[in-house]
Design a protein around this nucleic acid. Structure first.
Length: 532
RNA sequence: GGGGCGGUAGCUCAGCCGGUUAGAGCAGAGGACUCAUAAUCCUUGGGUCGUGGGUUCGAGUCCCACCCGCCCUACCA
């Protein structure tokens, strides 16, 4: 297999199906979608995977509470909530894996059977603390000194009631054996865990030494049975992580697996970084499989200065935003307003302000004024730039720089904000160019020179927009398509998605004679949206 | 308890190894223009740089203590 055939493979976490999809999970999916669209537009083979995590005790309980089987419950949630949200945010994933699918469960069983056969798994007993009220196992850090009648005992921080000690026969994965191997790997591959702050936390955690990991449960049965001892089901995480390989043909389609694995980027929220940067690579090492090239832990979305938590998820559903602003603005906002890798504040005010200022006024209005002038002065037929001078060259040079920056920032550094800044700085520059050149005044000069200048100014603006449409297609596919259409570009240049993004700065691609029409405005000004 | 990060203009944030009048975007104010989605372009704002000390000729920028928010991690019983 030639290396050039290797797909650029990006994953999101598989989301726990029992939780309602909110903007936090959609944030990861959006970022992955922008990243993969960008790489596709470079002409690379790309594979973008997302999906749902469907096992575990919590899901079993909700299913029962709703009087249906866990499979029925999970089917319903996927159908009614998780698949629709992909439409809502306009994600173009190549596959969607569910951990209840045979292609997953069978491969997972083989994987662990192999590790068991190889001596990586042993039977032991697990002793843990359990809060009956929470119905969860607790770590020492989840507990505190009791007071009053529970004085002297450790109580759950949530319920302030004593926890029970529970002993269970479990299978264990020899994670402890991988402490040094992981540390060596982090050392050799400093880019493996990003950003650097996330990497530091992972490294310092592993340096303390790893404990073997309990990988099975016997207290409930909604999970993948351990093949050699079917009273046990696999711990959800240990099952879920394998989706990244089972979905691309591990153990079933070697050709596809070779072409896809290892993943180029695992996108994860920083809360689940440890599973992806410690446990997952150890599992792969144990199985003799290549490790993913990069695990990127992005930040939280803060609402009102606080982390959006699952529990107090009065949360915001993506559709609440897209219903009003549209999916393009949704995608733009989260990529532009929040530095990927850092926590960022979400507010309706900020969203509204950016929509109006950046999308409607700067970008959309530029497209409108250019299309209007080509229509008004040249009957909608793009004229030739016969008087290209220094002012035009400045624009062309700035474009080339913006393209280079955007390609590096978005395509390599996963700095979506930086990439969008470059594009929008360019848009502002073109607005300024028009104001300086005053084509509406030049239009009154009917001399040949005057008309040549007018033609050149409008060509320059239209050609700039052509590049902007190409550059923004990964972030805002719908409005970019509308702009492409308005410029009449498809007739000569072909499909927008086929325009190589790294070549967008080559000046003069939009041919004179293109039919420019003033379609619907890209981002109509919106009524002030009320709180929440 | 230990470790880390953050607290800078109304809002969101930049400010590298200390050095002339602390910056950007948005919002606000004034002006220009009219091709355009009352849009665009130009100009403009004086904020105890969390608090209190200290080092220094000079400190958001270094040191100490403290307050607030968050993250990682422990002990113990």
């Amino acid at each position: 297999m030639a290396s050039s055939d290797k797909s650029y493979y990006v994953t999101t976490p598989i989301y726990y199906v029992n939780d309602a999809p909110h903007i936090g999970s959609a944030y990861t999916t959006t970022a992955g979608d922008v990243l993969t669209r960008w790489h596709r537009q470079r002409g690379e083979n790309v594979w973008y995977l997302t999906g749902t995590d469907e096992h575990g005790e919590k899901l079993l309980r909700t299913a029962r509470a709703n009087g249906v089987s866990p499979q029925e419950w999970t089917d319903k949630l996927v159908r009614e909530a998780w698949l629709p949200v992909l439409e809502t945010i306009d994600a173009a994933n190549d596959d969607f894996i569910r951990t209840t699918e045979k292609r997953h469960t069978e491969r997972v069983q083989e994987f662990w059977q192999n590790l068991h056969d190889a001596g990586e798994v042993y039977k032991g007993s697990y002793e843990g603390l359990y809060c009956v009220a929470c119905e969860e196992h607790k770590l020492p850090g989840d507990l505190e000194e009791g007071t009053g009648e529970y004085a002297g005992q450790l109580v759950c921080k949530v319920h302030h009631r004593p926890v029970e000690t529970i002993r269970e026969e479990n299978y264990f994965f020899k994670l402890s054996q991988y402490t040094d191997k992981l540390l060596a790997y982090y050392e050799e591959h400093p880019e493996f865990v990003q950003p650097a702050t996330a990497r530091n936390e992972v490294v310092s955690f592993v340096k303390q030494g790893l404990q073997d990991l309990s990988i099975s449960r016997t207290s409930f049965d909604w999970g993948i049975p351990i093949p050699w001892d079917t009273k046990h089901v696999l711990y959800v995480w240990i099952d879920a992580l394998l989706n990244y390989v089972t979905a691309v043909g591990y153990g079933s389609d070697e050709e596809k697996f070779e072409r896809t694995w290892p993943a180029d980027v695992h996108l994860v929220g920083k809360d689940i970084l440890r599973f992806h940067a410690v446990i997952w690579p150890a599992m792969l090492m144990a199985a003799g499989l290549p490790l993913p090239k990069k695990v990127f832990g992005h930040g939280w979305l803060l609402v009102g200065g606080e982390k959006m938590s699952k529990t107090k998820l009065t949360g915001i559903a993506p559709a609440q935003i897209t219903d009003h602003f549209g999916s393009d603005a949704y995608r733009y906002y989260f990529m532009r307003a929040i530095p990927f890798g850092q926590d960022g504040s979400f507010s309706w005010e900020d969203l509204n302000a950016r929509y109006t200022s950046e999308l409607a006024n700067d970008y959309g209005n530029l497209a409108s004024r250019v299309a209007a002038m080509v229509g008004k002065y040249f009957g909608g037929v793009l004229p030739e730039a016969s008087a290209h001078g220094p002012a035009e060259q400045t624009i062309a040079d700035a474009l080339a720089a913006a393209v280079a920056t955007a390609d590096e920032r978005i395509g390599e550094a996963l700095d979506f904000q930086g990439g969008l800044n470059a594009v929008f700085d360019f848009i502002k520059l073109v607005n300024g160019y028009l104001t300086e050149q005053e084509p509406w005044k030049v239009a009154k000069d009917e001399s040949a020179e005057g008309q040549a200048r007018l033609a050149t100014i409008l060509y320059t603006a239209a050609e700039s927009l052509r590049a902007v449409a190409v550059l923004l297609n990964a972030v805002m596919p719908k409005s970019s398509a509308a702009l492409w259409d308005s410029l009449g570009a498809e007739a000569s240049l072909g499909e927008l998605a086929k325009q190589p993004v790294q070549d967008a700065g080559r000046w003069g691609q939009l041919p004179a004679g293109s039919v420019v029409t003033k379609g619907a405005v890209l981002f109509p000004r919106l009524e002030e949206r009320a709180e929440g």
